[in-house]
């Protein structure tokens, strides 16, 4: 009994962690690259969720095209916001960045609430992704299995991009030493916009894929921002592998905590994060 519940906890925790990672990795890279304290990253995940749900429910677009379209829409949105608003505050004080991003959250929450109302938007999954699948004698929800596999493919692709392409090399160079990157002729302006777009696109994918884990509702950006920030802070700014470990650890420990000690809630997780950050203020995978 215990054995199977541990498998279940690991499985649900990993699924949760992967969603957290997909959403947060863009935040890690943009915060590390641009030094921008962005509390509004959840807005893009929420936008991805709403876009997916709306495309499916009101326009009858199938699940996968909806996800893809949502990513494209939100990437564009991130790109435009980066060029028009975010870029004005590069180099501004931490406080102004914090206030700006809180403002963005509030505006997004208001718009979403006016258009879609206060209730959470349920996602209608395609038939073939519902129900349960038996893995090693254990019945697990098919959708979560799909989610883990799909996220793993996306993450693999992301890492390859980061390690093997010129674009990835440029990002890594700029995170390490922006002045030097500029000096060797990297157009940091364009790089920032592209990275920001990519990060928001991934967040949108995470928001859409994870709609049944982190419910699509107006409070989304502020309700979950602490999770995304924890993943980034614990994982290490600018790192792309650190947050993966952090996200899985948080996903699994939070799931386990809620299963074994439901009465203590998230106290353990926050206490753990607090101690971890004291031990390693720059995260477990410190770059620089």
């Amino acid at each position: 009994m215990i054995g199977s519940s541990i498998v279940a906890i690991l499985f649900f925790g990993v699924a949760y962690g992967m969603i957290l990672y997909l959403i947060s990795v863009g935040l890690s890279v943009t915060m590390g690259l641009m030094g921008f304290v962005n509390l509004a990253h959840g807005v893009f995940a929420m936008a991805g969720g709403y876009a997916t749900v709306s495309l499916m429910n009101t326009m009858g677009v199938p699940f996968f095209p909806s996800l893809a379209l949502a990513c494209i829409i939100v990437t564009g949105m991130g790109f435009v916001l980066e060029r028009t608003l975010y870029s004005r505050l590069y180099g501004a004080t931490e406080l102004r960045q914090v206030l700006f991003s809180i403002a963005l959250c509030l505006v997004a929450m208001a718009i979403v609430r006016i258009v879609w109302g206060p209730l959470a938007q349920p996602i209608q999954l395609p038939e073939y992704l519902t129900g349960q699948t038996d893995i090693l004698g254990q019945a697990l929800p098919t959708y979560r299995l799909f989610l883990v596999a799909f996220a793993a493919i996306v993450i693999g692709g992301l890492w390859l991009t980061f390690e093997r392409t010129l674009f990835g090399a440029r990002i890594r160079a700029a995170v390490d030493d922006r002045a030097m990157a500029q000096a060797v002729g990297i157009n940091t302006k364009r790089l920032f916009a592209a990275t920001f777009g990519l990060g928001t696109g991934l967040a949108a994918l995470g928001g859409g894929l994870g709609a049944d884990i982190l419910a699509i509702a107006p409070a989304y950006p502020l309700q979950h921002i602490v999770l995304f920030l924890i993943v980034v802070a614990v994982g290490g700014l600018g790192s792309i592998k650190g947050p993966f470990i952090a996200a899985l650890a948080i996903g699994v420990s939070d799931t386990a905590c809620k299963y074994f000690f439901p009465e203590v809630g998230s106290v353990f997780v926050f206490a753990l994060v607090f101690l971890l950050l004291l031990w390693r203020p720059n995260g477990i995978m410190e770059r620089r």
């Binding site: 206030l99 700006f100 403002a103 959250c105 929450m109 208001a110 609430r113 006016i114 206060p118």
Partner: peptide, 14 residues
């Protein structure tokens, strides 16, 4: 309407 308030709050902060 709370949504209204969020919008004002956000706009003001921006």
């Amino acid at each position: 309407d709370p949504a209204n308030w969020y919008l004002w709050q956000g706009a003001m902060l921006l």
